[in-house]
């Protein structure tokens, strides 16, 4: 803190105390461990991903997919049954111009 006297008015000006700041930095860094800094950096870099994923444990895909799954088990409703004449009809009804 520096003091300037202007006439009869004493004005205190806040100056940055570099020595105190440097001591605080040294104390801060001395307290940090490998774990604390790694955690800080990881959370800093992954905050966007964590915001999307939310909190909670990751679970294995194999725990939710059955190994008995096959396409044969899916009922055929005929919706996706593309016969040759259907494919021809679809392509010839297209209005998208062909590239030259």
């Amino acid at each position: 803190m520096h003091t300037i006297i202007l006439g009869t008015v004493r004005k205190e000006i806040d100056m940055i105390d570099l020595n105190t700041l440097e001591k605080e930095i040294d104390e801060l860094l001395a307290k940090e461990t490998n774990e604390s800094l790694s955690k800080w950096l990881f959370e800093k870099r992954n905050k966007n991903i964590n915001a999307i994923l939310g909190s909670g444990a990751f679970i294995s895909v194999s725990s939710i997919i059955s190994y008995n799954f096959t396409t044969n088990n899916i009922e055929n409703t005929g919706v996706f049954e593309n016969k040759e004449e259907d494919i021809f009809a679809m392509t010839n009804q297209s209005t998208t111009p062909m590239a030259a």
Binding site: L18, I25, D26, L29, E32, N34, L37, S38, L41
Partner: peptide, 19 residues
């Protein structure tokens, strides 16, 4: 002061995290 602060902190980060 700024150079010292940045380099002290960066050195600590690199030593602790390898990054």
């Amino acid at each position: 002061f700024w150079i010292k602060a940045i380099e002290k902190a960066a050195t600590k980060f690199i030593k602790s995290t390898g990054i």
